[in-house]
Design a binder for these strands. Structure first.
Lengths: 226, 226
DNA sequence: CCATAATGACTGACCGGACAGTCATCATAC
DNA sequence: GTATGATGACTGTCCGGTCAGTCATTATGG
């Protein structure tokens, strides 16, 4: 999607440009990001941006897709297929939280595609993003059901939907001002957002998922931990 | 917050202006909404807008606050304090869904405060919005615990947080393009977003909440329906 | 009851700043 | 020497906010 020129420049320069773009777009949003300012922050002339990309839109899309790819690798990398559903879910939540804390910009980009006026981008990005996660969650849940680790009467699609919903809300609470304020209001955190409360909420969310998925009465009662 | 002039004009005119503003701001977002277009849609001159409000910001804030108040009344109105937690929760989810379907603009306004660049508005709106819901949910859950309808070991704050999280994600799926696409991906809906699937998801979400809140083994097993 | 005056809501042309995208010119590498 | 990348002044457009003037309504006074 970008012009060939982008591939020909020094990788360091390209990385600087792309990461600076991710940060700016994430912080200010698409419309409010000024191409001139982005250029100057990336140590590049404004004209050069148009040597690399056809337009602001194209640059934005590229940055988003790259961010999503990075996030995916960070979160789903290191998963062992031998682990059971519960272990894999916990891994994803914890790796996700860690990645989002170190690279909030990519989650902010994701959250921004749901904003007003971003529909053209949602049309181009949302399906492919969600498809991966949806397929993954459904597959793991189905496996769990087959293994008797997950209650057999579970509607796998519906469950995947709300598990991922909890994931989104939780991660959003780490990076979006609004959701941070909301988190503090619910958990009655007075001072800075401390890691303890966040970790407790994460643990309680995972416990919640466990308790809903686990088969009712006589099933194997051992917890699905490592 | 608006100027006195706003109170002196014909109510019909004022209502037209405010509802048109809500729709435009919701659809386009704050920055992309053009005061001239808003004026013309409302059948008013651009200059008049500045007779009613000091600035675009003030108008936006006013519209948001009004929308939140309307939403609150629509969703929390008609609650009977005699109902148990489960009944009240179900009522809120169903009334919320109905209201959001008939007035998507107000939920869109809410969702937009979490977008990039909206932090100044989040600072002014989020706390007060979330406080009401948070207090309500916590109070109902605490009552449920006291009555033995809710498991005693529940952390009320944490539970209120994720119950509301499920609410937000679900409602967002009704109005935001991104979340609509996501919903269809998860539930594998091929054609139009049909009400059946949405209603099933709503029912399953409520069932999920029930199953997590309900006391474990020997408690009263009757469901908390009307 | 009418004529004149006062009020203040209404209007839209206008201003200034911001910003995406262009392009003529310059630098560099081979 | 030429081809390709780099540059930033420039252009056209858009938009928030202003303000000088208009006009409908109401108040006054004879």
């Amino acid at each position: 999607m970008p012009k060939e020129t982008l591939q020909k420049i020094k990788p360091a320069k390209r990385d600087k440009l792309l990461s600076e773009a991710a940060r700016l777009f994430a912080q200010r949003g698409y419309a409010a990001t000024d191409m001139a300012e982005l250029a100057s922050r990336a140590g590049v002339a404004k004209g050069s941006l148009y040597n690399y990309f056809e337009s602001k839109q194209e640059l934005y899309l590229y940055v988003c897709r790259q961010g999503l790819e990075l996030s995916r690798r960070a979160v789903y990398g290191g998963l062992d297929p031998a682990w059971d559903v519960y272990h894999q879910l916990e891994h994803i939540f914890r790796r996700g939280a860690a990645f989002v804390r170190s690279h909030p910009e990519y989650l902010l980009l994701y959250l921004n595609v749901s904003a007003a006026g971003m529909e053209p981008f949602a049309e181009k990005l949302s399906r492919q993003v969600e498809k991966h996660t949806a397929d993954f969650l459904k597959a793991r849940l189905a496996e769990g059901v087959a293994q008797g680790l997950v209650r057999a009467d579970l509607n796998v699609n519906q469950a995947a939907f709300w598990i991922n919903g909890l994931y989104i809300i939780f991660m959003a609470s780490l990076v979006s001002r609004h959701f941070q304020i909301r988190l503090r209001e619910y958990l009655e955190i007075k001072g800075r957002l401390n890691m303890r409360a966040i970790d407790e909420q994460l643990t309680s969310t995972i416990a919640l998922i466990h308790s809903v998925l686990r088969p009712a009465a006589p099933a194997p009662a051992r917890r699905g931990r490592r």
